[in-house]
């Protein structure tokens, strides 16, 4: 079973596809739900404190806005522990989004330079394209699994 990171990291559709293929999707839903359940921290809504933007300094300098660094501290580790990554670029916000264009750009860059097996596709506009995207994702996962 592979650990598969996805982009956008909160896409329910991508997460479901990975799971159906028998792998473990690395999503922010899981990360955030762990944070939210942490009774030691009281910083609603996400239980993120000033510590996260500080941790985000390992990805971006202090000149990057606090919201970018806070997001990177949550999403960055997901890409670091992944065996494979599947990214859908130019997806509409209701497919999954981080709210911040700068964080999106940086995560796509992180994916590119990670060297981990990756499949980067563009969000499909027609049903035919959507079928093709699903088949390519499943084929990619099979291929990575075979090489593992």
């Amino acid at each position: 079973m592979l650990k598969v990171a996805i982009f956008p990291p909160n896409s329910l559709i991508l997460s479901d596809l990975v799971e159906r293929a028998g792998h473990e999707p690395l999503t922010i839903m899981e990360t955030i739900s762990k944070k939210v359940r942490d009774v030691e921290i009281d910083s609603p809504p996400l239980n993120i404190t000033a510590e996260e933007p500080s941790k985000g300094l390992q990805y971006a300098s202090a000149e990057a806005p606090s919201g970018v660094r806070g997001r990177l501290s949550v999403f960055g580790p997901l890409y670091e522990k992944a065996d494979a990554i599947i990214a859908l670029k130019d997806a509409p916000m209701n497919f999954g989004c981080l709210g911040c264009a700068r964080t999106n750009e940086f995560l796509l860059y992180m994916i590119k330079k990670s060297g981990i097996p990756q499949l980067v596709l563009t969000y499909p506009k027609t049903e035919e394209e959507a079928r093709s995207v699903v088949s390519r994702i499943l084929a990619f996962l099979k291929e990575v699994e075979g090489n593992d």
Binding site: I48, E51, P53, S66, C100
Partner: peptide, 11 residues
Amino acid sequence: ACGPEYSGIQK
């Protein structure tokens, strides 16, 4: 607003 929850300042 944009960003206060990920900056940890919503509270």
